[in-house]
Design a protein around this nucleic acid. Structure first.
Lengths: 199, 199
DNA sequence: TGACTTAACGAACGGTCGTTCGTAATATTT
DNA sequence: AAATATTACGAACGACCGTTCGTTAAGTCA
């Protein structure tokens, strides 16, 4: 890896941490340069504009998300076991204080950019739309495997799962409720129970 | 109402609109002054600091929230009917494009300030904690009235309700999914059905 | 080692931020 | 109408923003 790529990677890691806490609005080139002990212009040159930095951050976050959340789930058996792993690693992603001290970056960005037209909003919305498709598809597979009811609405399943995750973030990060993760796991168990075939 | 109070009210209304779209980080004294066709310093004088303006906005939003969401619910009969009204008016609050073009202000602020220590974070967290208490208490009353199962966990009910609401915001505002409200209503119906006594 | 490419720097730009302050205009009260 | 209190203003402040540019230093490769 060349010197430039090394520096770029270091910038992205630090910027990811900062953005998870402060959002894109809250990070600045100068602040990142200070933290990385380099000059504003030197850091700036790696991206050409702040918007390009933000786009690079979205890609970097997506890459890491796939590695830590999706890949483990794909290694698990199709159907219910995969969904159990998926949810577990999803929680783990959001609790990783080392890389994301401010919690899941996508949650923070979702409400920050949802009203700001532009490439950043477009890119995030497309990525998150794909994420919902992945959740939906996973539920469909569980139906195919006979793990879930045949009349389950997979999209509604994805919606409910997303709600459980968002509520967890809200309880944990704003309310500082220590039982947030437990509540999320309870709701998840209930969601699974309802998806099971009748017997 | 004196001239000063009139101006202050106009500022708060406009600032509320702006903040629901851009968050507290995204609004500035200068921008608000432009929109209201007054000078920066003239507007500034009403609050003394930007933080004081933010605190005033929290109070103003809370006032309106109580009027449009809580009061109608309190007029409804105790128990399940009250919760039905509560959820309906809660959705209405978040869909009011006139006053909150960017959607529910509390959702936007929750993720923006959750990592920023200070009076604004403290005030918001306390208010939102009270809101969870109100939801919990409403579920408790429904149990007392015999509308809901005796073994229902009212706090978990509040958690799930919050998740449904947050997912609705996420689907509607980021994904621009036209069925967001329908999905929320479906999930709500399912939540109620699960809370009902067995028969 | 030397030639060349890449990376990082420092200084400066116009602009906006929140805030201060002395002054002018407007409301309110006497 | 006069006296007073309130409200709004314009100009300026230091700080920081993203960005540009010419120059220097470091890395890469023949």
């Amino acid at each position: 890896m060349s010197k430039g790529q090394q520096t770029r990677a270091a910038i992205l890691t630090e910027a990811l941490r900062a953005a998870s806490v402060e959002g894109f609005q809250g990070i600045s080139i100068g602040m990142l340069a200070d933290r990385l002990k380099m000059s504003k212009s030197g850091l700036f040159a790696h991206f050409g504009s702040k918007e390009e930095l933000e786009m690079a951050l979205l890609d970097e976050a997506a890459q890491r998300f796939m590695d830590t959340v999706w890949q483990p789930a794909m290694k698990a058996p199709r159907g219910r076991p995969r969904i159990e792993v998926l949810f577990k690693s999803w929680l783990g992603w959001s609790l990783n204080h080392e890389d994301l001290p401010g919690g899941c970056l996508f949650v923070a960005l979702a409400v920050e950019v949802d009203d700001k037209p532009g490439p950043v909003r477009d890119h995030l919305a497309e990525m998150q739309g794909q994420w919902q498709s992945m959740l939906t598809r996973s539920a469909q597979i569980a139906v195919q495997e006979g793990h879930f009811r045949a009349d389950l609405d997979p999209k509604q399943f994805a919606y409910d799962l997303q709600g459980i995750f968002l509520a967890m973030n809200y309880y944990r990060r704003l309310l500082r409720d220590g039982s947030a993760v437990d509540r999320a796991e309870d709701s998840f168990r209930s969601l699974i129970a309802r998806a099971l075939p009748l017997h």
